[in-house]
């Protein structure tokens, strides 16, 4: 039993880190530019499709991932320059409408290029099976996701906390006008941040492709989870995004694993069998509502 709980905790960690890859870019864009970008999920989808296409053509998963990141960063930068830039000064609702429109267009574009049916993206042969650790086997590819997630979290932490650009980013997140007044080229900074966010999306899409279906609409289902994460963590805070991701990952995974079992121990079997899965499905929403009830601006509010 302890081993099972341990394994489930590892699963939760992995699911959380995978959400973090998405949430990090989302929270940066949101925090710094005060911009609700619903099309974030579309960048994730574009990243996964690019990775699948390049991996299939080149026969190498790694080349696929790199190409996806580079390609999606370019798409992201273009998008920022062409459309999103004009939205920063607009209210949230206009941003919602415009980026919703972008979702519609992106989905149709992907359908037109790659067709209606899901496409294939598989892990490299060496990582497609499980590995033995401490007596239980665990999927090698999930371990890779954990490693990549930890590395990205570290790199982002160093970039945001220790570098000059990171300082601007933090300054931008807490007070945009002041940052501009200090003579920093905010426009270029925004394009850069947006491109980095897009790259992280693509990384998430490419890394999750071997575990999840690469299909039209894949961005929307995971976008909601990413929003849950950044709202729990506090918008604009990388630390909050990390804590939020792990919290959502662990609570969701352990909830699904343990709730039915827990309920069975003190409820009649029939009731527990009905209630367990239903409760597990809404657990993260209950978590979010509860956190916002007590901390209405998330766990780590970035703006003072």
């Amino acid at each position: 039993m302890t081993q099972l709980i341990l394994e489930q905790a590892l699963n939760g960690l992995q699911f959380g880190l995978m959400l973090f890859l998405l949430a990090a870019g989302l929270t940066l864009v949101f925090g710094i530019m005060d911009m609700i970008n619903l099309a974030h999920g579309s960048l994730y989808m574009v990243g996964a499709y690019l990775a699948a296409a390049v991996a299939a053509a080149s026969g190498s998963f790694v080349i696929g991932v790199l190409a996806a990141v580079a390609g999606t960063m370019a798409v992201g930068a273009l998008l920022e320059l062409a459309v999103l830039r004009r939205l920063y000064t607009r209210d949230h609702l206009s941003q919602v409408l415009a980026t919703f429109a972008l979702i519609l267009i992106a989905n149709e574009a992907v359908r037109a290029i790659w067709g209606d049916q899901p496409v294939m993206l598989n892990a490299p042969e060496a990582l497609s099976g499980p590995v033995e650790i401490a007596g239980f086997s665990y999927p090698a590819f999930r371990l890779l996701i954990i490693a990549v997630g930890v590395l990205v979290a570290l790199a982002l932490y160093i970039a945001v906390a220790k570098t000059r650009v990171g300082m601007w980013v933090r300054a931008g997140a807490s007070n945009r006008e002041m940052t501009e007044a200090l003579g920093i080229n905010v426009k270029r900074l925004f394009t850069l941040v947006f491109a980095v966010g897009a790259g992280l999306c693509a990384l998430a899409g490419a890394m999750l492709g071997p575990l999840l279906a690469v299909q039209v609409g894949m961005g929307e289902s995971i976008l909601i989870l990413a929003f849950v994460v950044i709202v729990i963590g506090g918008i604009g805070s990388i630390r909050g995004a990390l804590v939020g991701s792990l919290l959502v990952g662990v609570v969701d995974t352990l909830g699904r694993a343990l709730l039915p079992w827990l309920l069975r121990s003190f409820l009649p079997g029939e009731v527990a069998a009905h209630l367990g899965p239903a409760l597990a499905a809404i657990l993260i929403y209950v978590l979010m509502a509860a956190i916002l009830f007590w901390k209405p601006a998330g766990l780590f509010p970035a703006r003072g």
């Binding site: 489930q8 699963n11 367990g276 899965p277």
Partner: peptide
């Protein structure tokens, strides 16, 4: 052994661990 998931669920690690056990 009946395992019920959420409709539209993305990640099945928890269920798979349970099945393995």
């Amino acid at each position: 052994e009946e395992v019920y998931t959420k409709l539209g669920q993305l990640d099945y690690a928890a269920e798979l661990a349970q099945i393995r056990a």
